[in-house]
C-alpha cells in the first residue's frame, strides 16, 4: 500500500493531537540542540518539529525509548503511555530483537520493559542515506528491515510504500487507511533504491572486511587486544550508546516502608564493574575490559541468544572520545585470527 508523504505527515500530526489511534505520544527523529549536520535524535513530535523519517539512524539508540537509562523497577510501573515511534532503522530493529531475547524470555521477564514494548508501535523506515560509521552490511544486516518490525516505510517519488510485519503493524495500516488516502499502486523501483544504499555501504566499509569467524576471537593473543585498546580511556560511552548493551545496576532507594529498586545502565568498560567486596575483579586491566566488550558482542551473545550483539549502527565509533573505530578493531583482530 502507498501513501503520499505529506499525507502521512498529516496522519502523524493527527495522532499527536490524539484525534485518532489513542496515542499519547508520537516520537520521531528530529534535529535538536544536540544534533548537527543532518543528525537527528528521537524526540516527541510537536506541531513545529523539523523531522526526517528517512535519511540514516538517529544519534541515540531506539533502546533508550523502551529500556530506560534509569528507571524504578520495583515497585514496577503500573502503566506506560501508548506510543507511536516512527522512523526507526533496521539496525535498531535488529538490536531490539537481541534485547527482547534478554529481557522477555522463558526464564525472565522485566516487567517495565515488557510494558513499554507492548504499548509501543514502531514504524521503521528504509535508510536513504548513510553516515560515516554505518556498517550494517559487515554484520549481515541491511539498511532496511527484513523481520521484527511492525510497519515499514520505503520512500520513493514522494510516496511511502507501506509494508506490515506484525499484528500491530496491520492495525496501524488499517487506522491509516481509515484516516488518509492510501492506494495499491507501484510508485517506483524500491529494490533498486535499496540496492544503491547497500552498494554505498559496501564501498564505505571495503577496507574493514572481516572473515566473520567470530568464534575464534577468544583465542586471539592478549597482545593484540592490548595494542588495539591503547587509546581507550574506559569512559563507557560505547556501551551506553550501543543498542544491544543492557548491563544494569540495581540500586536500593528505599525510603520508608516500601522497598524500592531502581535500575540504571552500567558499563563493563568501567574498572569497578565486576569488582567484588574486598577489591577482587576478574578484569583489572583496560585491555581485558576492552576485549570483554568485543567478545560479548561476537561470542557470548551468540552463545546466549544465537544472535551477535553488533548490528552495525556504528554509534560506538561516533561516541568514542579516543576515536577508536570499532570496525577497525574487529578488522585487526580478525586479521590476527586469519594469520593463525
Amino acid at each position: 500500500m502507498t501513501i503520499k508523504v505529506e499525507m502521512f505527515y498529516d496522519f502523524l500530526q493527527q495522532c499527536r493531537e490524539s484525534k485518532i489511534g489513542n496515542f499519547q505520544q508520537v516520537i520521531v527523529p528530529a534535529s535538536t540542540k544536540f544534533t548537527t549536520d543532518g543528525q537527528q535524535q528521537f524526540s516527541p513530535l510537536a506541531e513545529d518539529t523539523t523531522f526526517n523519517l528517512d535519511t540514516y539512524r538517529t544519534i541515540d539508540p531506539l533502546k533508550m525509548l523502551y529500556y530506560y537509562f534509569r528507571e524504578r523497577v520495583y515497585p514496577e510501573n503500573g502503566k506506560t503511555p501508548k506510543r507511536l515511534i516512527v522512523g526507526a532503522k533496521a539496525c535498531d530493529i535488529a538490536a531490539m530483537r537481541v534485547l527482547d531475547k534478554a529481557m522477555d524470555n522463558d526464564d525472565f521477564v522485566d516487567p517495565n520493559y515488557k510494558l513499554w514494548r507492548e504499548n509501543t508501535t514502531i514504524v521503521s523506515a528504509d535508510c536513504t542515506e548513510i553516515c560515516p560509521t554505518c556498517h550494517c552490511t559487515l554484520v549481515g544486516g541491511k539498511p532496511f528491515v527484513t523481520e521484527g518490525f511492525d510497519l515499514n516505510l520505503s520512500r520513493i517519488n514522494g510516496n511511502y510504500v507501506m509494508t506490515t510485519g506484525s499484528k500491530k503493524g496491520k492495525e496501524l495500516l488499517e487506522l491509516i487507511g481509515k484516516n488518509a488516502e492510501i492506494k495499491e499502486s507501484d510508485p517506483g523501483d524500491i529494490e533498486k533504491q535499496r540496492k544503491e544504499i547497500v552498494t554505498q555501504l559496501e564501498r564505505q566499509n571495503k577496507s574493514y572486511a572481516r572473515s566473520g569467524v567470530y568464534e575464534k576471537y577468544r583465542s586471539v593473543d592478549m597482545d593484540s587486544w592490548n595494542d588495539n585498546s591503547k587509546a581507550c580511556i574506559g569512559c563507557g560511552a560505547c556501551t551506553n550508546i550501543c543498542p544491544t548493551c543492557y548491563c544494569l545496576i540495581l540500586n536500593d532507594e528505599t525510603k520508608g516502608q516500601q522497598f524500592t529498586k531502581v535500575r540504571s545502565y552500567d558499563s563493563c568498560q568501567l574498572s569497578g564493574y565486576a569488582r567484588v567486596a574486598g577489591g577482587g575483579t576478574p578484569r583489572p586491566k583496560m585491555y581485558q575490559r576492552f576485549r570483554n566488550r568485543y567478545l560479548c558482542k561476537f561470542d557470548y551473545m551468540k552463545s546466549n541468544f544465537n544472535m551477535i550483539g553488533c548490528t552495525g549502527c556504528g554509534r560506538c565509533t561516533e561516541a568514542c572520545a579516543a576515536k577508536i573505530d570499532f570496525r577497525e578493531v574487529v578488522h585487526n583482530v580478525d586479521a590476527t585470527v586469519a594469520n593463525k
Binding site: A102, M103, D107, F108, D110, R218, Y246, C247, L248, I249, L250, D266, C268, Y273, A274, P282, L295, C296, D299, Y300, S303, N304
Partner: peptide, 15 residues
Amino acid sequence: MYCGFGQCRHCVIGE
C-alpha cells in the same frame, strides 16, 4: 552477582 537472574552481566564467566 548483582541482579541474580542473568541480566546485569556483572558476574559473567565467559558465556
